[in-house]
Design a protein around this nucleic acid. Structure first.
Length: 163
DNA sequence: GCCAACGTTGGC
DNA sequence: GCCAACGTTGGC
């Protein structure tokens, strides 16, 4: 993906990020207002955060491994990428001895709460919506926890979540 | 709890 | 570089 510049301003990009609500939910983010998105240990997902996110980008907050799974609300990127410090701590669940402070393997951004949807937009509903048919999330076997999403798809889902 | 679909690791 | 074994994700 490439930064799209218009009159010198970086145009906002759109993302979908998965979290298990048992660990970290949209309600947790609402309470905290801002949180590091730590624990991502997949290179492709890391690369999106490290190389392609800009402050202000919009995020669909997806609840995975939930009953039902689906999009719960909206967040935004509110920091530049920086090292995921949880990788340095052997007591952390996502500790990774390969990653060092001098040469960090894992990078993350902070995310800020924007809104919780009036209602959860379930994966089942997303699959039924023909406008979303070519979404990356709905592709077979897509396990990416951080992925880009098209603006038009973002808007469709936002509409589904309000009312 | 099951299991398909991945991603990673490590022997060769 | 190949690929089998293993670990993880995440829907169901």
């Amino acid at each position: 993906m490439v930064y799209i510049k218009s009159k010198g301003a970086i145009v906002l990009k759109y993302w979908l990020m998965k979290s298990e609500p048992m660990c970290f939910s949209i309600d947790d983010l609402k309470k905290m207002k801002k949180s590091p998105w730590d624990g991502v240990r997949n290179y492709q997902a890391r690369n999106f955060m490290r190389d392609e996110m800009s402050v202000g980008d919009r995020i669909l907050f997806y609840h995975s491994n939930a009953k039902p799974p689906g999009v719960a609300g909206i967040a935004k990127v509110c920091s530049k990428p920086y090292p995921d410090f949880t990788a340095f701590d052997s007591k952390e669940q996502h500790y990774d001895p390969k990653s060092s402070k001098d040469d960090p393997t894992w990078m993350m951004v902070d995310v800020c709460f924007v809104e919780k949807f009036d209602r959860l937009v379930s994966l089942q509903e997303l699959r039924k919506e023909t406008k979303l048919a070519d979404m990356l999330l709905l592709k077979k076997g897509c396990r990416l926890s951080v992925m880009p999403i098209e603006k038009k798809h973002f808007n469709v889902i936002e509409t589904m979540g309000s009312s």
